[in-house]
């Protein structure tokens, strides 16, 4: 379970998050939509303290941190509750695919090397990369790299996986691969928070959609409510513009 209360964050006096309250149940898949600059990525990064909120309480699992007086130890503890998939993959460049997945297990979870290797191979099989175990990230396509990123997060078996625009840097052709992997994980009942611009993904996979603008959650609801019966004018305008722009949506078919 994730619980946020009064999360505030400013960059150089520019308020980016203006007091976010949020509760996410175990097993829920929550997508965050919103225009750029709305604070959705910052909110995600505040969850694992890659950005330290200026105020507010973050709870993930049974770790509760008051961000105003968060110590290094607390930040580490809460980071261990989550894992993150990055927009630009951020795989460890000097480690092979299997080493990338093993790294967190060995260092942070203190799993024995041999067990870590077994677990990693199993997870990599799940994302369809069993044949690339000993390749370096630079030898993989963007889609393959992102699947390693997902495997790296998944292997840690965290309380929640945070996805930061996981398909934004990919070739349109490869987006479908990655989305279907995320979708299959979602069906296993792992809690996920996904920042995305993939409307079809938000619609089909998530249990709940948040719409953010200017540092606040403008509206939240089930995909059905948000996409077909949005209450707020701002939400409707955003969705209209997005759907207006995407005449060409081959992605939808691939996800299905």
């Amino acid at each position: 379970m994730i619980y946020l209360q009064g999360i505030k964050k400013s960059f150089n006096q520019l308020p980016v998050l203006k007091g976010i309250n949020l509760k996410i149940e175990k097993g829920e898949v929550v997508t965050i939509l919103g225009p750029s600059g709305s604070g959705k990525t910052t909110l995600l990064r505040c969850l694992n303290f890659l950005e330290k909120p200026n105020a507010g309480i973050v709870q993930i699992g049974n770790i509760i941190v008051d961000s105003e007086k968060a110590t290094k130890k607390e930040m580490l503890a809460i980071r261990k509750q989550s894992a993150m998939v990055f927009q630009h993959y951020n795989l460890f460049a000097h480690k092979t695919v299997v080493e990338n997945v093993m790294e967190g297990l060995i260092v942070a979870k203190k799993v024995k090397k041999k067990d870590a290797r077994h677990q990693s191979e199993r997870v990599l099989e799940k994302v369809g990369l069993s044949d690339k175990l000993h390749h370096y990230p630079s030898q993989l396509s963007g889609g393959q790299q992102q699947r390693v990123g997902i495997a790296r997060a998944l292997a840690l078996n965290p309380e929640v996986i945070l996805f930061d625009e996981p398909t934004s840097a990919l070739d349109p052709e490869l987006v479908g691969d990655v989305l279907s992997v995320i979708k299959s994980i979602a069906q296993e009942g792992i809690t996920m928070v996904v920042v995305t611009h993939e409307m079809s993904f938000a619609r089909e996979v998530s249990n709940r959609v948040l719409f953010m603008d200017e540092g606040v959650i403008v509206e939240e609801g089930t995909p059905l409510e948000i996409f077909h019966a949005a209450k707020e004018e701002r939400t409707r305008r955003f969705l209209q513009r997005i759907s207006g722009e995407s005449f060409f949506t081959p992605l939808k078919e691939q996800v299905n």
Binding site: N48, L50, R79, M84, F86, N90, F92, G104, A108
Partner: peptide, 11 residues
């Protein structure tokens, strides 16, 4: 991003 990834896996 390398540092952030390391933090994200709990280092």
């Amino acid at each position: 991003g390398q540092m952030e990834a390391a933090y994200s896996v709990g280092m």
